[in-house]
Design a protein around this nucleic acid. Sequence first.
DNA 1: CTGTTAGCGCCTTCAC
DNA 2: GTGAAGGCGCTAACAG
Lengths: 354, 354
Amino acid sequence: MTVTLADVAARARVSPATVSRVLNGNYPVAASTRERVLRAVDDLDYVLNGQASALAAATSDLVGILVNDIADPFFGIMAGAAQTEIGGPGDGSGRAGGEKLAVVCNTGGSPDRELTYLTLLQRQRAAAVILTGGAVEDPAHQAAVAAKLAKLADAGTRVVLCGRPPLPDGAAVVAALAFDNQGGARLLARHLLSLGHRRIGYVAGPLERTTTRHRLEGHRQAMREAGAAGDEDRLTAHGSYDRRSGYDATVELLRREPEITAVVAANDTVALGAAAALRDRGLRIPEDISVAGFDDLPFSVDVVPALTTVRLPLAEAGARAGRLAMGKENPPPGGLALIPAELMVRGSTAGPRG
Amino acid sequence: MTVTLADVAARARVSPATVSRVLNGNYPVAASTRERVLRAVDDLDYVLNGQASALAAATSDLVGILVNDIADPFFGIMAGAAQTEIGGPGDGSGRAGGEKLAVVCNTGGSPDRELTYLTLLQRQRAAAVILTGGAVEDPAHQAAVAAKLAKLADAGTRVVLCGRPPLPDGAAVVAALAFDNQGGARLLARHLLSLGHRRIGYVAGPLERTTTRHRLEGHRQAMREAGAAGDEDRLTAHGSYDRRSGYDATVELLRREPEITAVVAANDTVALGAAAALRDRGLRIPEDISVAGFDDLPFSVDVVPALTTVRLPLAEAGARAGRLAMGKENPPPGGLALIPAELMVRGSTAGPRG
DNA sequence: CTGTTAGCGCCTTCAC
DNA sequence: GTGAAGGCGCTAACAG
C-alpha cells in the first residue's frame, strides 16, 4: 500500500504535524527530531501526496506554459528557458524540494485546445500560467480567453504573456512581454528597400493571428513609406508557419508576380520552404532573388546562404516570463514590455539583379 | 470566494453526491436533475477542483512526458504527437471533459532533473509517464531511474519509454519503443562505403548516452565489416547534440585527419554545424566532402545541399507512446518494439573526390 | 519546539 | 434515482 505521512509519523514517533513541518521546512523543528523524521522518510520511501497537500494548503506547485507548436524551436526555446527559471536547477539529489512543476502544454494553435488547457490548469489551481506566442484574433475566442484568464488571476494564478500582445481590454495579467514584430518587420523591409528592391513578395503566416498581422503591418508600413507598396494583396500569400506552406505560397507568389526580386517570409521556417521553392524554379539566392525570414532560429545561420532575418531574444524573454511567473522579478511598468527585435543581415539578401 | 461543488448542489437543490454524479457521468441521474445541475454549474461558473477529486478518487489526470531538450524538434515532434493522443481533440467547447492533462517536462538532459521530475510526477500520482530520447548510461543513475519507475508503476502509473532502450533489468514498464539507432547508422555507413568512402569522420553525441553509443556502434560495425575501420578514435569526436558542437568537432576532426572524405554527424542539427565548418574551410559539399546526419528533421530536406540522413518516424512513435500510455493500444510482445530507421539519400553525399 | 484538532473539496459506499 | 456520512492525505491554526 501507499505509505502516508501518518506512517512516517508513527515510525518516527512524532505527530503528523511535525513530519509535515520538517518536510516543508517552514517551522522550527529540533535537529534531532528532524533527523529521525528524515530517516523514517527514507526508510519508508515516503513520497508526499501532491494533491493532498495542495488541497490542504490551497496552493499548487504546477505552472503551465502554453505553446502553439511544441515541435517549433521558436516555442521550444522560450518554453525551455521559462522552465529553467521555474523548475530551478534541482537540488542535485533528485529528491525534489519545493520546486514547482513547470509543464508545457501544446495547443497546436487551436483555440479550443487553448481553452481546454486553461480549464485543466484552472482545475489544478495552477500557481502560474504562461501563454506564449501569437494569439488568435477571433473576438469571441479572445473574450473567452480573457474571461478565463481573469478567473485564473482571481483564483490566485499568476498569468504572464510571453511573445504575445496584451489582451484587448488590458485584463489583469501579471505582465505581458510583447515582441516588437512590427518594428522588426519594418527594419527588414527597409533593409531590402535600401538594397534597391521594390517588388517584394511577402509570405505571411496564418490569418487572424496577432503575430502574422503585426509582421505584415510592419512590412507594409515600410513599403508605403518608401512609396513601393504596389498591389499589396497580390504581393502577399498566406499560409501556416511551416516550411511546406512557405514552399507553396512562394510558388503561388511567383505565379502571380514573376517580377518580384525578393521574398520575405513570416518566419525562418517558412523562409526555408520559400528558398526551396525558388531554387526548384532555378533561381539563385541571392543573385536572382533575395530571401529573408524572421526569428533567427538556430539553424538560420547555417543554411546556405545564411539567412537574413530578424532576431528575437527568445531565450531571454522566456526566462524573464518564468521569473515573472514566479514573482522573482518585478513586472515592467504598466505590466507591459515591448521586446525589441534586431535585424541580422546575412547572405540571403543582396541587391536586385540587373 | 471559490465556488465549490456544495454551492452548486445548493443552487440546484440536490445533494453534493448528485452533482458529483452528473459531473462524472458514471451513475444514472434523471435527465431533469442533470439539467438543473448543469445549469447551476454554468450559472456559478463552477470549476472542479482537480486536487480534491484526485485525492478522493485516488486517481489523477496528469500525464508527464519527459524530454531531454524541448528546443530540439526531435523531442518536440515526439512530444507533440504523444500529447495529441493523450489530450484528445478537445470537445470543442473548451470546457474540458475527462481529458488528461498531458504535460511535457524538460530535463535538459540532466540526470538530476530527470529524477526530480519523476519525483514531482510521482507526487502528483501521475496517470502515466512517457520518457523520451536516449538515457544517460551512468549505472548509478540508471539504477535510480529504474527504482523510481518501479515505484511509479507500483503506484499505478503507466510508464512508457519512447525512443529509449528498455531498462537494463527489464523493469516493469508498459512498453519500450526503441529506435533502431544502430541499424540506421549501419545503413548510413554502408551507403557511404558503397560510394567509395574509406576515411569517414564521425561527430558523435555526448558520451554515456545510449543514443550516442548505439549510433556510433552501428557506424563502426559497418566500417569494420568493410575493413575500413581505420583508427576509430582518431576519426571520432564527441560533442553535444547542437550545431555549435558539430562545428567545433568537425574542425577538430579536420585537424586530426585532413584526409577524410566524409563526415557523419550524430544528428541533423550537428550535421548542420559540421557542414558550416567544412564550408568555412573552403570545402564544397558534396564535391570535396560528403556530409550526413541522423533523424531527418523537417529542415533537413531544405538545406543546401539537401541532407542525406536516416529517418526516424518520430511522430508515429510519439503517437504510439501516447496511446500506450492511455491504454488505448496493446503493448508489443514482450513490451518491446524496435522501430526501424530508414536511409534517406540526398544531395549531401556523393563519391569521394578524385 | 511539538501535539491536537479541524477541515480543504470531493467521491463513494451504504441506505432509502 | 437520490441523500447522508465518512474519509482520501495533508496543513494550519491553536494550545501547550
